[in-house]
Design a protein around this nucleic acid. Structure first.
Length: 598
RNA sequence: GGGGACGUAGUUCAGUUGGUUAGAACGCCGGCCUGUCACGUCGGAGGUCGCGGGUUCGAGCCCCGUCGUCCCCGCCA
């Protein structure tokens, strides 16, 4: 910052154009631009300035011969000063055109300069060329947000949400707000708690999702609801998980699964169109069973070939020789177009399987030497082409395993191998959008630690009608009317047709190990509401941050969240969370006890 | 809770087997420069090697601890 720099008031000055919109057609016009000094090129008696605003940049010229006082004052400008420029748009002479700049055919010859504010030297360059540590970017987020890449992400997020709102509005959906200060329901993720001053000793919880409210909106006759809404979960963070994140929350009355699929496919088409991409609908559907068996995952990445069980091609004695369990699948993983591998390149693959309770055969060629006929049949059955990498994953003979355990490990290996050779096969193209619906999830999962059945989706999910009679007898076989929408291995959204009968809802609670009292205590209002005329209803919620992240081609949702938190849940800019004063705690009736000796 | 990577100038990084005064590029400051656009050019300033302890004649480098950022597992109905 410069001492004695005279700053100018904004006064009545009004911007006439954005920097980035100036074109040859504007030549001859007088303009008034406002923005940040991006870069300065001082040639002595000629001084060039790149002025930057939200729209882009344009070049400003100061000439000592034509306006000595103005030129003198412009000499004081530094990076990120906030200024206004009056001047005339002038066409550049042919050799001075800058084709790299959208505004490169013109420049503004300055006739007036208003310095609204100076600026300390920024902590890092506003330059796309150099990667800056995220720690610095988050601390100085207001500087980081000025970078064109962040500006583009912020804008993209706006365009996508605007398109989604238009879409739901055109389909007759009402955007309805639900409370942030609500009730803790200790199922699922940990809640963020907010102490109540008026009811000392009691706490609100921030919603993990507006699940019960949106169902109650259906009971309230709202028919079609959506909300772009913040949700809060006090769990550990990841590249695609923040403690507060945004859901596109949807619920409608009288739907079938297909109603939801069609609706959401349309919404995603609109959202991707807003992001500049066309996607094909309808999306393929895959049952959960099939997804687990063929991809070893409930969120398969369809950009890569599926796996196949090739066990049937082996003779029993061959399986025995290879120490493979005869009753478990032997999964062939094919990674296309990997090309020839040297011995050492092949050896690099072994560690990928380390620590997994599976037998991993990374060298199909070596297997072929011992079992030529079998491997030939396998190669033909999976349509292995020249240069494709084929590996096999099976279960070691003897050990007991859970259902889909081998497939899950094989699926993880499939992704690791694909990742390892991503540059060779080029299939993991971030712009290749491969959606699908995963359907027919199991209703319950056995919780080994709690020794009870747990809801695989959530306890308001309707079981398939055919399965009602075996809810109690064979809960492990009951299928839920739940569905996930998956894109390139990322779960984008999850939903279900809900339970709308209180008798069925009570049965489910009971099955989940909740006795009458407990159910009434936690969800009494909801069970009661179900008795006052609840329509069949269902819906879905999609992660907006993940959606925009994928559209932006980013690898972390922090890149599409203006003010995200670090992996330890800290906001480096405002430095939150912080301890609070004793007076604040006293007022809330809250006492803080910390583990001593730490 | 567990595993891994990283931490040196404002930024991005280099730093040999533990050895004299810790370097580079960009940025920053000053001079010169009329067509630059990542301007050029000449000069200059700038370091708690994350922090604490230890080993050693000597530590940016080795050891222990700790803090921070990132990635993954667990967790996320």
């Amino acid at each position: 910052m410069t001492e004695n720099l005279q700053l100018d008031p904004l006064g009545t000055l009004r911007r006439s154009h954005y920097c980035g919109e100036l074109r040859r057609a504007h030549a001859g016009q007088r303009v008034l631009l406002m923005g940040w000094v991006h870069r300065r090129r001082d040639l002595g008696s000629l001084l060039f300035l790149d002025l930057r605003d939200r729209s882009g940049m344009c070049q400003i010229v100061f000439n000592r011969d034509r306006a000595p006082a103005l030129h003198e004052r412009a000499g004081a400008l530094r990076s990120e000063y906030v200024i206004g420029i009056e001047g005339e748009v002038v066409e550049r002479s042919a050799p001075t055109v800058n084709p790299a700049l959208a505004t490169g055919e013109v420049e503004v010859v300055a006739s007036g300069l208003h310095i609204f504010n100076d600026a300390r030297t920024p902590p890092f360059l506003l330059d796309e060329a150099q990667e800056v540590a995220e720690e610095a970017r988050l601390k100085y987020r207001y500087v980081d947000l000025r970078r064109p890449a962040m500006q583009a992400n912020v804008r993209l997020r706006h365009e996508v949400t605007a398109a989604i709102r238009r879409y739901f509005d055109s389909r007759g959906f009402l955007e309805i707000e639900t409370p942030f200060l609500t009730r803790s329901t200790p199922e699922g993720a940990r809640d963020y708690l907010v102490p109540s001053r008026l009811q000392r000793g009691s706490f609100y919880a921030l919603p993990q999702s507006p699940q019960l409210f949106k169902q109650i909106l259906m009971m309230g006759g709202c028919d079609r609801y959506f909300q772009i809404v913040r949700c809060f979960r006090d769990e550990d963070l990841r590249a695609d998980r923040q403690p507060e994140f945004t859901q596109i929350d949807v619920e409608l009355s009288f739907p079938q699964e297909e109603t939801v699929y069609e609706l959401i496919e349309g919404m995603l088409a609109a959202a991707f169109a807003a992001g500049g991409s066309e996607i094909a609908t309808p999306f393929p559907r895959l049952s959960w069973e099939e997804a687990m068996a063929r991809y070893g995952s409930d969120k398969p990445d369809l950009r890569l070939p599926a796996m196949s069980d090739v066990r049937a091609h082996f003779a029993p004695e061959e399986l025995e020789q290879l120490k493979l369990a005869a009753e478990e699948p032997v999964l062939a993983i094919r990674i296309p177009r990997v090309g020839a591998l040297s011995r050492s390149q092949r050896d690099e693959l072994r560690p990928l399987a380390e620590g997994r309770p599976v037998r991993f055969f990374e060298d199909f060629g070596r297997l072929a030497k011992s079992f030529p006929a079998t491997t030939e049949r396998i190669g033909a059955s999976i349509a292995a082409g020249e240069g494709d990498l084929v590996t096999l994953v099976g279960a070691p003979a003897g050990a007991r395993r859970q259902r889909h355990e081998v497939a899950t490990h094989a699926g993880a290996l499939r992704l690791a191998l694909a990742q390892h050779f991503a540059e060779r096969h080029g299939l993991l193209d971030a712009r290749d959008f491969r959606f699908l619906w995963v359907t027919s999830f199991p209703m319950f999962e056995w919780d080994e630690t709690e020794k009870r059945w747990a809801a695989a989706h959530h306890p308001f999910t309707s079981p398939r009608e055919d399965d009602w009679e075996r809810l109690e007898s064979e809960p492990g076989l009951v299928k839920a009317r739940a569905y996930d929408v998956v894109l390139n291995g990322t779960e984008l959204g999850s939903g279900s047709i809900r339970i709308h009968r209180s008798d069925l809802q009570s049965r489910i609670f009971r099955l989940l190990g909740m006795d009458e009292d407990e159910a009434r205590q936690r969800f009494g209002f909801f069970l009661e509401a179900l008795q006052y005329g609840t329509p069949p209803h269902g819906g879905i919620a999609l992660g907006l941050d993940r959606l925009v992240m994928i559209l932006a081609g980013e690898n972390s949702i922090r890149e599409v969240i203006p003010f995200p938190k670090t992996a330890r849940g800290v906001d480096l800019m405002v430095d939150a969370p912080t301890p609070v004063s004793a007076a604040q705690l006293r007022e809330l009736g809250v006492q803080v006890t910390l583990d001593s000796g730490r």
